[in-house]
């Protein structure tokens, strides 16, 4: 469960983000819709503990983020979050497998076997050699490797920041389907941020970020 109440963030003494309250239930798939510049990215940074709110607090699965030290926050993020970016999710000079294993480098969780990676890649309909350098993959393939990495630690929460914006409409549909199936299989909570309203139909809960964020009213 994620609880946010009266959370504010200021940058250069200007209020960028001001959320009265937001509750996300465990396993829920929520869609945050908002124009660019509506501080969606700031919100994601706050949620995974990279930025700290100026006022208010964020509680993630019973842990108040403000109660953690900087390095504890990093640890917490490694253990509980899987993040998928818009593009450039992978280190181009590492192989598919190495990119996925990066997720395990900063957690205490058990060692991931090569079979597990293979199973996950199969489930994501990726039939590439694990040793292929990431830079040789298509954008669609790269995004699916990113999903595999976000899921490999079985995180409680998956943050996705416009992961489909670089994909064409066919690939987009396929990507959404796979993401949903895998997120559900892990029982992960999905926080999906996009400006693309057409994606909203896939989700249980939809928020308009420009109404949620009072700083922009």
């Amino acid at each position: 469960m994620i609880h946010i109440s009266t959370c504010q963030f200021q940058y250069d003494k200007k209020s960028v983000l001001d959320i009265d309250s937001l509750h996300i239930k465990e396993g829920e798939h929520i869609f945050l819709h908002g124009k660019s510049g509506s501080a969606k990215s700031t919100f994601l940074n706050l949620l995974c503990g990279i930025l700290e709110p100026t006022h208010g607090d964020i509680e993630v699965f019973g842990t108040k983020l403000s109660s953690l030290s900087l390095s504890q926050k990093d640890k917490f993020r490694a253990d509980n979050f899987g993040v998928i970016f818009q593009q450039f999710n992978l280190l181009p000079y590492l192989s598919v497998e190495e990119n996925i294993l990066l997720a395990c480098g900063f957690t205490k969780s058990k060692k991931i076997s090569k079979e597990e990676i293979k199973i996950l890649l199969d489930a994501l309909e990726l039939s590439v050699d694990c040793k292929t350098a990431a830079m040789k993959l298509s954008v669609g393939q790269q995004q699916r490797v990113a999903v595999a990495r976000a899921l490999i630690n079985r995180p409680k929460i998956i943050l996705a920041d416009e992961p489909t914006s670089a994909l064409d409409s066919d690939a987009k549909e396929r990507f959404m389907k796979l993401l949903f199936t895998q997120a559900s299989a892990c029982g992960a909570t999905l926080v999906f941020v996009s400006h693309d309203k057409s994606l909203a139909s896939h989700f249980d809960t939809v928020y308009d970020f420009s109404t949620l964020n009072r700083a922009f009213v």
Binding site: L70, S71, D74, R77, D79, F106
Partner: peptide, 16 residues
Amino acid sequence: RREIAILRSLGASAKV
């Protein structure tokens, strides 16, 4: 910068 952002999202600390 992207490389660093990826590592940070995966939980890499300042120490790393």
